[in-house]
Design a protein around this nucleic acid. Sequence first.
DNA 1: TATTGTTATACTCTATAACTATA
DNA 2: TATAGTTATAGAGTATAACAATA
Lengths: 176, 176
Amino acid sequence: MNRADGGPEARGGAAFLLAQLGAHAAGRFAERLAGLDLTPAQAGLLRHLAQNPGRSQRELADDLGMLPSRFVPFVDELEERGLIERRKNPRDRRLYALHLTPQGLDLLTALLDVAADHEQQICQALTRAEHQQLSALLRRIADQHELSPGIHPGYRWSQPRRSRGGAPTSRADGAG
Amino acid sequence: MNRADGGPEARGGAAFLLAQLGAHAAGRFAERLAGLDLTPAQAGLLRHLAQNPGRSQRELADDLGMLPSRFVPFVDELEERGLIERRKNPRDRRLYALHLTPQGLDLLTALLDVAADHEQQICQALTRAEHQQLSALLRRIADQHELSPGIHPGYRWSQPRRSRGGAPTSRADGAG
DNA sequence: TATTGTTATACTCTATAACTATA
DNA sequence: TATAGTTATAGAGTATAACAATA
């Protein structure tokens, strides 16, 4: 077999399949999130905020890999929707302390239901044992590459890229 | 454990890990491709063209999920670099037949070497047996979701998204 | 009339760099 | 002087809609 045929090791290797399936999974999840009127980055902030309440905007922007300047309107929208809350920090009046509101917590629970459904749909082809096996293998790879749990590189772009009509494939890149 | 804590099933599930690792793998591969002065979409076309020579621009744009209008300058650049060739189709003079040049074939072989290195680096944490096991599981999932072999959703965007300086993390989304 | 390749334009989103207020 | 939050602006990249040539 000629090496220059773009052979199976390139299209069927684990690395390519990871990239391809990862984008697919992220896109499907983004579709589901759209039903909750959330982008992947917004969902990421809600989850992150539930576990790290009271952090400043600067810290949160760093956590999610976003620019502070873009983080401002990003937070604005969620605050206007009553999902998160900006509290002034009395110790240092330059800082905000961001918190989830009760409404934000409600939406987060709905989000977790969606994520659980999504998980099952993606791994539908596997048995329960294989599903666990896959998770374990992926977690080991993620650990070795020192990926932060729960932080997706795609959060960097708060807005999903528009895809044209036809198939309902929103957000074909990585965020989920 | 409270469901609303953004618990482990959301951050450690296979679906999220797939999206996270997929974006990571795609980003790392994009960095390596930059060494060959190629974007992921360009690499995808070279590989696809090696196995599907003589197709029209319209067909190739459909294959890669790109808009025909954006496919034009996309092909222009590769043609100017002498990597691919537009041949007029004598049967239907509206169509071009795209082919890889010898130079394009050379670059493709270099690309496959890069892909092989990349594959090993991504799966470095796994034994040989586990690596094969992972590939098999991923392929079954990809088959069930009817993903086209070798076609990445990220090809839709021919240009990688710019990320800001610091860490050399080009293309954090899905294309590879 | 439909289709291929092409071009032009309007629009969306982003990074950069200022600016303010606090420290 | 340095930092948090904010705002404004210039630029990159895209989808949409036209267009000419050919069928």
